[in-house]
Design a binder for these strands. Structure first.
Lengths: 117, 117
DNA sequence: CAATCTATTCTTGTTTTGTCAATAGTATTT
DNA sequence: AAATACTATTGACAAAACAAGAATAGATTG
């Protein structure tokens, strides 16, 4: 799994702003650990994030009780992995984020339309 | 011009991230001063921004030479107004932002699709 | 047992953000 | 004409977020 290259260019603030909902979406599909999320985010197009940014976001979301974590000591190819899964509150947070993302998509659409006229 | 209400609720970081391209788009259409931009942003849906956030963004964009400003002492209903207009470099910055916004729109689309399946 | 890969946390300095106060001119009211 | 309210912008500061790298540590491979 090629986890080599981070941060070659500065990512826009937009990319970072979308990290939280992206994590919620991925965790809704199934529980994962941070290292996996890192590459899942990359395949979504969020490939410029420093690992510590992702881990920090996960810890913050755990403080908010949007996710819960536990240790996975089995089937690991390294040290124990922290496995995150969505909580009920996290599902609600995701629904709020969905509305926010929809508003944002419409706004971006309006901006693009305006900027091309 | 009802400029009353700012910041009743916390705005998401997404909203703030989109401020810069929004200002460029508005200034591409015509030169404006900050106070007008404030209400133009509001009618675009960016209504939760504190005035000083907008003024600061404008000053930063002037440092980058994306916009130029001059004083408008005539036709004012108050103190002199600083009028901003887009520079050639600002137009190029806007083109870069357009691509960024398009990428972001696609990414949000993918997230929304994933989160609803 | 040294090197490498997987996996997460911690630390530190820098940037960005949010908020509030300050300034100041004009318009309106009394 | 003094007081008040509205228009318009700037400055300052604390709090939060971010970037990057170092530190930790288990597993695997040679």
């Amino acid at each position: 799994m090629g986890m080599a290259s981070h941060c070659e260019e500065r990512h826009s603030p937009l990319t970072a702003s979308i990290l939280e909902p992206a994590l919620l979406v991925l965790l809704k599909a199934q529980p994962r650990h941070g290292y996996t999320l890192l590459s899942d985010l990359a395949s979504l197009g969020l490939n410029l994030l420093h690992p510590s940014v992702v881990y920090r976001a996960l810890r913050e979301m755990e403080d908010l009780e949007w996710v819960q974590s536990g240790w996975d000591t089995d089937q690991t190819q390294g040290p124990p992995r922290r496995v995150y899964r969505l909580t009920t509150q996290g599902e609600e947070a995701l629904r709020n984020w969905q509305e926010e993302l929809q508003r944002m998509q419409e706004l971006i659409g309006r901006l693009l339309a305006l900027s091309q006229s």
